[in-house]
Design a binder for these strands. Structure first.
Lengths: 113, 113
DNA sequence: GGCATATTCAACCATTTGGTTGACGGTTTG
DNA sequence: CAAACCGTCAACCAAATGGTTGAATATGCC
């Protein structure tokens, strides 16, 4: 493994970890709260979170006795860009794609195409 | 693992397998030729190819005594869509993205946009 | 101080992964 | 037919993965 992209993909290859990421999409969460919906030990979830953190997909910050987990979506970018090298995306102009995103992702009631 | 998305991500988590996919981006290849640049046994590459095939990322067709490997980029779509749930891609309009691709990825000397 | 809460550590276990080697089954060619 | 080539299978191995439990470490509260 070792390289960055491999680490990210490996982290994403586990459904529990993907579920955790989906949960964190809503809001930052404490480790205990992340663990709550799963029927596995807190230690197991703690390990999953460590893996997500070492892949850069989340960051953890301890405030008081609780450790808050925060999604870091930017870590997906490199892997996402790798994937865009394939399929319909293979000849993509990344600058044009960037411009596309800027207009497409503008605030809801902003522009009329 | 078991689910489709997990299988695809797991397949992508290995640098050898990603290298193979990159090679297949150029052209279809025989197993032996895929194995050539790597310094590991043919059997090992054969296993990697089986993993890529079971993830749906490639297909293999035997013609005569050689087995041809072909990239199947569509298998990346589901995983790619999953990733788009995060980060800057979360509010993307897939139809608009499709139209964008159609113009942006038009065959070199085919039609003038 | 003492107890409850939040999280990790350490040791352990079963299974999977990524690799090796050698034998084997098809296919092509001399 | 026999020899060479293509690829997989089977058995094995070391290391990584995903999980468990119980003890340990912080922190907060009465």
């Amino acid at each position: 493994m070792s390289d960055k992209v491999s680490t990210v993909f490996a982290a994403l290859a586990d459904p529990t970890r993907r579920a955790i990421l989906s949960m964190l999409l809503e809001d930052d969460m404490a480790v205990t709260d992340v663990a709550h919906p799963f029927q596995m030990s807190l230690a197991a979830i703690s390990k999953h979170l460590a893996i997500l953190a070492s892949a850069g997909l989340i960051t953890q910050e301890k405030r008081g006795r609780v450790k808050w987990c925060k999604l870091e979506p930017d870590a997906l970018r490199e892997a996402s860009i790798w994937m865009q090298g394939f399929g319909q995306f293979e000849r993509i102009d990344l600058d044009a794609f960037e411009r596309f995103l800027e207009t497409e992702l503008a605030p809801p009631a902003d522009q009329a195409p």
